[in-house]
């Protein structure tokens, strides 16, 4: 489904080259839960942004269903992210002036029924019309999960979705993501190995390289 080959991402930091990712080769298979585990600064988030088309690699290729992500223009890449991918970030980013259900409709204005159903399934039945500041951190992240799921994406990219939550809430979020992803793949980056208990595969990262595969 997604095939990254010899992918590198290099930053210039005060005239010094820093390899966020260094010749990484990785495949995301249809329907799998792939965990990417590593300490802070290991390059796991950078890899996630490369795989999801949010960043362009300095070298190497990333294919999605056989087409090179780098050959897509901004519009095509945005469409891909919007319709075929889903995202959950470290922080539960929501638009503060929209209610929980409106935050989901922002990405898919015609899916009101599915948005409400997802929120109910994620345990937010009574909070559909609450503004983000009226929700707890865990509830906000669950709204983000619903937003990521609303278009039934082929791949969900989760960048440390449990980082801002306590352990219990974190586990709940991962469980919900895994339960509701359907036939879609889940790529989750974390530094906490206990969050990857349900993963089909876990890849370790250190200093921009994949170091082990479980």
């Amino acid at each position: 489904m997604i095939q990254a080959t010899d992918v590198s991402l290099v930053y210039n930091d005060h005239e010094k080259q820093v390899f966020a990712c260094n010749e990484v080769t990785i495949e995301v298979k249809q329907g799998e839960f792939l965990g990417i585990l590593g300490p802070s600064g290991s390059g796991k988030s950078s890899l996630l942004y490369l795989l999801s088309g949010l960043k362009n690699p300095t070298s190497g290729t990333i294919l999605h269903d056989g087409s090179d992500l780098q050959s897509l223009n901004d519009q095509q890449r945005a469409e891909l992210r919007k319709k075929r991918f889903g995202f959950v970030f470290q922080q539960p980013f929501l638009l503060g002036y929209l209610t929980a259900v409106e935050n989901i409709l922002a990405i898919s204005p015609t899916s009101k029924q599915r948005a409400e159903q997802l929120l109910v399934e994620l345990g937010l039945k009574d909070k559909l019309h609450r503004l983000p500041h009226e929700l707890s951190g865990g509830e906000r992240q669950r709204v983000c999960v619903a937003r990521a799921l609303v278009n039934q994406p082929e791949v969900i990219f989760a960048d440390e979705p449990t980082a801002a939550l306590d352990h219990t809430n974190g586990e709940q979020v991962v469980q919900l993501l895994n339960q509701h992803r359907g036939a879609g793949s889940l790529v989750m980056v974390t530094h906490d190995p206990t969050m990857l208990n349900q993963a089909n595969r876990v890849i370790g990262m250190n200093n921009g390289r994949t170091v082990e595969q479980c």
Binding site: D74, Q75, A78, L80, K83, F85, F87, F93
Partner: peptide, 16 residues
């Protein structure tokens, strides 16, 4: 900025 960054990340173009 957070709003713009988030929207762009989840699939809106700069033009939109």
């Amino acid at each position: 900025l957070v709003e713009f960054g988030l929207l762009q990340a989840i699939g809106f173009t700069k033009q939109q």
